[in-house]
Design a protein around this nucleic acid. Structure first.
Lengths: 238, 238
DNA sequence: CGTGCCCTTGAAGATCTTCAAACGCAGTGG
DNA sequence: CCACTGCGTTTGAAGATCTTCAAGGGCACG
């Protein structure tokens, strides 16, 4: 237990939800956690599942998807190592509004609802931290809402790629590689369009030398070029 | 002061943020509040303003708008009496991400940042209440995000009207009147489309007897008809 | 009785989706 | 080693959907 506590405490400290906790509190958090591992394409939980638990991703990458009645899916958020997910559901005690699907083999700490309640009771600063996390999510959602409401697909896709580069970009010779196995369909579900339109955009940008696209792979050759598209600025070649 | 406290306490108790507070706490909340009145088309604050304060709407109706660089506006949320707004900004201490414009003459209680901090320190349950409010907003935003990403304008507009009916609907003979002065442009900014498309949708629905549209006015004659549109179900007449 | 604001409508065209067909790569099994 | 197969991808063509622009109508309010 105490060894695990040590291994986990690094991850816990990096996480915004548990930032600023003292040693004793970290141990409490660790002692109530359970572990869960999921292989690529597996799920931590499905939309509608109950009861629901708080998750902290230690390793891997998770996509949170929401489906409409007719089966159309949207990716609401990508979660990377050190980020929590299902915080809202765990706090509210409501069913998960999304399905958490692993893009690659993933490993998370999990706190069930009694544990979350216990933590909230015993750790004074936790509620403030939780609020900070939620506030950030609201900002993010409002911005994306405005984007999807007012911008064209190419602009939104460019922004999505830029965000992905920040979230999971790896510098390589020739540009920034988005180091996630994302299909055209995945990008479409993040952008609010179809895989066909995504494919066409990427093909056009490849012709212009802005990106290099491959199977479940995008390499950004010119961040500046993408910004130009995202902001709808006139580009050199038309 | 004490009279004001009495007048306000009813409004405070109805508000989710201050629910469950004891009498002493309510008095504290009231004692730190300031009043602000704004006429129709006036604003409580503008995007980018700082420092920012927590607002509780007592009377009137407020639209929260966000503008993109090229001037396109989106209505992120409508706020009715008893609801708080700018909670996130007040908690974070960041600039307002939206402009709060009054749809009709409005009256609000306002707490500046020191007051908010003081309240958070002195009222133990407040943080939990704030979280509940934020969680609700996240749910709402995620749902609307999925809608705007996957549905056609007519579906989204139908949903917007149904939400408005719930939020500010007044039963009259012949249906439910949306009791707010909303222009076609406003509806467009809530739905992520143009005023022209809104106008055409309403005209079509009027022909089918689903709504009755007028200048800054919509009367829903058949809620069921709107649901049919929103869910993209086959309707009787095509 | 104008004047401003909101609304409607048509026409043209941009943008995006849908559908069908086919390509190519990765992994599998013969 | 090769063929097979599945999956992700590409591309074209057709058409649905939505936006844009222009013109004009009508109502409210000064």
């Amino acid at each position: 237990m105490s060894m695990k506590g040590d291994v986990w405490s690094a991850a816990l400290a990096k996480c915004a939800l548990f930032a600023g906790l003292d040693e004793e509190e970290v141990l409490l958090v660790a002692s109530l956690a359970q572990e869960k591992r999921v292989r690529r394409k597996g799920v931590f939980f499905r939309e509608g599942d109950q009861p629901c638990a708080l998750h902290l991703l230690l390793a891997g990458e998770v996509a949170l998807k929401q489906a409409s009645i007719d089966g159309q899916e949207v990716i609401v958020r990508l979660v990377g190592p050190g980020e929590v997910f299902a915080l809202a559901s765990a706090l509210e005690g409501a069913a998960y509004p999304v399905t958490a699907e692993a893009l690659r083999a993933s490993h998370a700490l999990v706190w069930d609802q009694p544990a979350v309640q216990e933590l909230l009771r015993r750790i004074p600063g936790l509620c403030r931290n939780a609020m900070a996390v939620l506030l950030r999510r609201i900002r993010d959602l409002e911005q994306r809402f405005r984007e999807i409401a007012t911008e064209r697909v190419s602009q939104r896709l460019a922004r999505t790629l830029l965000r992905l580069a920040r979230h999971a970009g790896r510098k390589v010779e020739g540009g920034v590689l988005i180091d996630l196995p994302l299909s055209r369909e995945d990008l479409a579900q993040m952008t609010g369009t179809t895989l066909f339109t995504v494919s066409r955009c990427l093909a056009e940008w490849e012709r212009k030398g802005i990106v290099e696209a491959g199977r479940e792979k995008v390499l950004i050759r010119s961040t500046h070029g993408l910004v130009t598209v995202a902001e709808d600025l006139p580009s050199a070649d038309e």
